[in-house]
Design a protein around this nucleic acid. Sequence first.
DNA 1: GATGAATGAGTGTTCATTCAT
DNA 2: GATGAATGAACACTCATTCAT
Lengths: 228, 228, 228, 228
Amino acid sequence: MTRDEGTGNGLAAGTAQWPIEEAPAPTSVEGRTLSRKGERTRGALLEAAEQVFGALGYHEASIVKITEAAGVAQGTFYRYFSSKQAIFEELVVDLNRRVRHAMSEGAARGTTRAEAERHGFAAYLRFTAEHPALYRIIRQAEFVSPATLREHYEKIAAGYVEGLRRAMGEGEIVEADAEVLAYALMGAGELVGMRWVLWAEASEVPEVVVDELAAFVSRGLGARNGWE
Amino acid sequence: MTRDEGTGNGLAAGTAQWPIEEAPAPTSVEGRTLSRKGERTRGALLEAAEQVFGALGYHEASIVKITEAAGVAQGTFYRYFSSKQAIFEELVVDLNRRVRHAMSEGAARGTTRAEAERHGFAAYLRFTAEHPALYRIIRQAEFVSPATLREHYEKIAAGYVEGLRRAMGEGEIVEADAEVLAYALMGAGELVGMRWVLWAEASEVPEVVVDELAAFVSRGLGARNGWE
Amino acid sequence: MTRDEGTGNGLAAGTAQWPIEEAPAPTSVEGRTLSRKGERTRGALLEAAEQVFGALGYHEASIVKITEAAGVAQGTFYRYFSSKQAIFEELVVDLNRRVRHAMSEGAARGTTRAEAERHGFAAYLRFTAEHPALYRIIRQAEFVSPATLREHYEKIAAGYVEGLRRAMGEGEIVEADAEVLAYALMGAGELVGMRWVLWAEASEVPEVVVDELAAFVSRGLGARNGWE
Amino acid sequence: MTRDEGTGNGLAAGTAQWPIEEAPAPTSVEGRTLSRKGERTRGALLEAAEQVFGALGYHEASIVKITEAAGVAQGTFYRYFSSKQAIFEELVVDLNRRVRHAMSEGAARGTTRAEAERHGFAAYLRFTAEHPALYRIIRQAEFVSPATLREHYEKIAAGYVEGLRRAMGEGEIVEADAEVLAYALMGAGELVGMRWVLWAEASEVPEVVVDELAAFVSRGLGARNGWE
DNA sequence: GATGAATGAGTGTTCATTCAT
DNA sequence: GATGAATGAACACTCATTCAT
């Protein structure tokens, strides 16, 4: 993952800075170290959970449905996760890591600042399209696991804040409260994703929408040499 | 409700334009017309539902809890609402009407455009603080009643779009896709509300946060003579 | 209602002998004497109950449905009947009286013995077709009010027994246990009615079926100069 | 089970001919194959259901009562039957198979035609005495599961019809509509059973009653060399 | 006298979780 | 190590009945 150096800027910089754990999957459960096969079963359960939680929501989803989707017996579930809530939380953490990764990679693809910014949002929206579960699971987390939900937003916000602060320091964008900007940006992305991906059941957001959003944000950040 | 005339502008104009039904409370159930007492019972149930859904979420909320909170017997519930889902949906519609009303009123309080804009957001954030249920119930609606959720956002967006288009026509703000802007604005408000009202368990958003948000939006809309 | 005298015979004689109360509708409830209007309301409730119990069965039927069908308020029901079970029992008694009346009248229409017999069954089957509720309500009575059910069959059986005994005395039919014959005849009629009226949803049993049934019974009773 | 060959006749032939599946108990639920223990639990539930439905009727019977009677937890019920209605229907099918089996066996015990006929009815009445649930459950089926009810009668009738037709062909009984006769015979047996088993709470029908019934039927069928 | 609002016990059913095999 | 049978608490909802107006 290359980071954009030198041209430090707002959004792109931000997305590039999220701290991402490098060893994603825990390989032990309650002390047991997982075998190859165990690892695979665990992965199958997580993936099944993403599908099922995404499609049905936390409450309609049931352990039976998840284990069925994963092709294992009901009891097997509890060899890998201590509860329904536990796998849910793990899923949020997992998706959080992956979306931040996607956004970083996206932002890094831009060479000019405007492009980078646009790519960051585009990556987020693309991830949303590919993983509608992210959006839906996050909404469920509100009640299922508020702490995890908060952590999710805080981690993304932290990345934004760091990037925005650097950009401010370098005079690339207007001086402002970086945290407010961070939450505003996340919110904008979330609802645009909801409107043009989820509701439209589209596999991607129309380019023009991404452009409009990026332009709005660019202006809002008071970016010099912004979009256009 | 005074509307800003002549100086039609972006946000303020938008918030001022939401079409709001003036006769809010339905007064009949399944054809029956409600007596005074019935009206009161129904109101108590709705209020209790707002508290309970807001505090526990749709699934943890139960009819027993709602009726207990309302001080009526379990069976009484079904004289006024046909199901748990039904009262939930009614609640969304109700809150939607009230939040739009609050935003309109807020926006109308501003005399200059910048003030109006700021007041619109402030009103929304104040409403969120007073009715945390709005935010939480909306999140639940994702799975409980997607159509109602969508309607909620679409109604608010429609108000924004109308106002933004007018402002564009009058050259007050930059020419852009009004719908994209609308969803971006809603998202920004929603997450800022989540961060500074819900998480902070504050009764209001710090003034400076409102200012920062308004400034960001003002710049993003390319408002002439904007905030500052 | 003419009774067959002189030519005393089996079935026809039997059907003609059921003791039928002549003043059918009780005109007071819990001491209250019913006004004209009250009488009408009570009748409407009974009729509605016949429809509803017949269509839905005892348990699916509800007081609300009955009162709705009768066009009165829920509470009004309890001014005329003390409980759901009470109106059900009254209905059984009522239908019992009416079916016995119908059978008597039918039987009386026959001039020869064979005709009379045939007419008795035909009348029963016609009544079944016009009042499917009879059959269905009787089946429900098994658990709802066993005593009433038993009374229903015993009353019909009593009529048969009396007629059969007389016919035996006059040498018209074979000497046998009249009660066994009575229950066999009732059972035969009931299931034929079920098969050719209820299942066929027909408004009457095909003539040929009535003929076959009458012939079987005629032979079974060892009737001299019977059917043919 | 020996069948009467050569002397093919009416009732006995009929009862002897019911097609009876030889592998009675389904051993899998929703695709799952039942373990030994599972099989036992399932059986216990069916037996408990027979008792409870028989004693209380469909509606008064509750899953709690059934599971209590079977000595298992409430939830266990749903591992074996998908609903209250489902176990009810299974019960009807089960009882139907068993009563037809009993009747066949009974009829086969007769050597002369008159004996066989008598044994068929006697077997039916004995079964009724041992399984009052049959009678009571059938009556409930009217509303609970009309299709199953109909199937029950049709299967028994089919056996009768086949036997009666053969007997007619061989000149043993009078030529007549076999289906009408079948329903008449079933009805006669049913009500005699109700009167002398259920109401008398007797463990068997008095011999004389069986004799009388058999004689009536014998005459009704126009049997040559009939009873006596 | 009629109404209809209120009651609350009771139902069928679901499902996360445990544990013997 | 994996299974799947068993559990039982919990829930949404119904309805006969009561009673104040």
